[in-house]
Simulated scan of single mutants.
Amino acid sequence: MKIRLALLSVAVMVALSGCGDTKDDTAQKKPENSGHEGHTDHVPSGDVPEGLKTADDPTFKVGSQATIQDGHMPGMKGAKANIAGAYSTTAYVLSYTPTTGGERVQHHKWVIHEEIENAGQDAFKKGQEVTLLADHMKGMKGAKAVIESAEQTTVYTVDYTPTTGGETVRNHKWVTESELSAP
């Protein structure tokens, strides 16, 4: 009986060891900052929200290169980015609980004005509760969020290869002008 129990225990441990994390080098890893801790399923898309205005004279032109100075996702900080899009809008830092469950995401950078339900002409204020239309992270679309800060700025979509290695991340949303520098 003890031998059967020991063999069964070993078999279960072997089976469960195959259920661990698998390596995925497409920006789906544990993040470098609290803005995405425990919630790192980036969903890249070239789609931009309806009504989003292209920036008239962005510091970083579409097609140019820049260096990313902030680490929203693993391997972002210090990565060379190709500018895929440049838009004028209000960018928000906010906290929300994913619709897929799990821990509340604190200090998420960035959701833009056009990615919030019933966004009128005026920017949302600190402390306001909103419903997200953004879907660039799993569990974001439809989530209730609280605005922590707002910044009128140029936001960029960027393509970059993580400094940690792996495949190129395409159309990462969003990086603000202050988070980029000349290459």
Rank of each mutant, 00 (worst) to 15 (best):
Y160C: 11
K77P: 06
Q152Y: 01
A182T: 03
G51H: 13
I112M: 15
M137S: 14
T154R: 02
V146L: 00
D70H: 14
K77F: 03
P58C: 12
P49F: 02
M73V: 14
P58T: 11
Y160V: 11
T164S: 08
M73P: 12
D41G: 14
N82H: 09
L16V: 07
G51Q: 12
R170F: 06
D25Y: 10
L5H: 05
A66L: 07
R170A: 10
E50N: 02
G85Q: 11
L133E: 10
E103R: 11
G46C: 07
A27W: 08
I147H: 10
K109S: 12
D56S: 13
R170V: 14
T90R: 01
C19K: 09
L133D: 07
D135V: 00
T99G: 01
E117A: 13
R104G: 01
G71Q: 07
S17V: 00
A55E: 02
K109F: 10
A123C: 00
L132R: 09
H107Q: 12
T40I: 04
T157C: 04
A15I: 05
S45N: 09
D25H: 11
T99E: 01
T168Y: 12
A27F: 06
K23M: 02
I83V: 14
H172E: 02
V93W: 01
V130Y: 07
G63M: 14
G46K: 07
M13Y: 01
K126C: 03
G18D: 08
D56C: 00
Q128M: 12
A79E: 02
I3F: 12
S34Y: 13
N33H: 06
E179R: 11
D21F: 00
V10M: 10
K53P: 05
P74R: 13
L52W: 00
T100M: 00
A66H: 11
T176S: 01
R4W: 03
E103I: 05
V62E: 14
D56A: 15
H107S: 12
Y92F: 04
T97K: 14
A123W: 02
E129R: 15
G51Y: 13
V111P: 15
D25R: 10
G20Y: 06
V93N: 13
E179N: 06
T67G: 07
K80C: 06
T163Q: 10
T161N: 11
A145G: 10
M73G: 01
L7C: 08
A79C: 09
K126M: 09
A27C: 15
S181M: 04
S181V: 03
H42C: 04
T40H: 15
V105K: 08
T131H: 14
V130W: 05
S34D: 15
A55N: 02
I147L: 05
V175F: 11
N171D: 02
L94V: 10
P98G: 02
T90L: 00
A84R: 15
T168K: 15
A134R: 12
V158C: 04
T153K: 11
P31E: 07
E32R: 00
A145R: 09
E103W: 01
A123V: 00
T157E: 06
